[in-house]
């Protein structure tokens, strides 16, 4: 498990706006995807989620998950196209995770009338080792 309880809460609220059709399974897929990233990338994603979670408090006196869907959407549009490059980067990066988790998984394929793989082969869920995170100093 990569997401903490607070991060999971944030990501669910994010997903509700960004990919409205996503269900709870997508949270688990996204969590797995994030956990396979190098430690430094995971740290940046967590930092973005922390900032995006509390930033609305300074305007709406509520954290991100406590906002209405409309206000969450307005806030995310500001992050997505606003003047702060790091916020844009964080938003579009987390959006990529959400979209890959949703559309990369067969739960979404029926809605697209997409038949999925041509070959019938087992799932491959074991992730390789990132050598740079695993090993010590060169």
């Amino acid at each position: 498990m990569s997401f903490s309880e607070r991060q999971t809460h944030f990501f669910r609220a994010f997903l509700e706006v960004v990919v409205p059709e996503a269900n709870e399974d997508v949270v688990g897929v996204a969590d797995r995807m994030v956990s396979s990233k190098p430690a430094a990338i995971q740290k940046k994603m967590r930092l973005f989620m922390f900032v995006a979670n509390i930033l609305p408090f300074f305007r709406f006196f509520r954290t991100f998950p406590s906002l209405s869907v409309q206000k969450r959407e307005r806030f995310l549009r500001w992050l997505a196209t606003g003047p702060v490059g790091l916020f844009r980067l964080g938003f579009w990066g987390l959006r990529s995770v959400a979209l890959l988790a949703f559309y990369g998984d067969e739960g979404s394929w029926k809605g697209l009338e997409y038949g999925g793989p041509i070959v019938d082969r087992p799932r491959r869920l074991d992730l390789p080792v990132d050598p740079y995170d695993t090993l010590g100093d060169a």
């Binding site: 995807m33 396979s36 890959l100 990369g104 070959v119 082969r121 799932r123 491959r124 869920l125 992730l127």
Partner: peptide, 10 residues
């Protein structure tokens, strides 16, 4: 190679 993008990220 199972043609699933979620799995093949590895």
């Amino acid at each position: 190679f199972n043609q699933r993008e979620a799995d093949m990220q590895s």
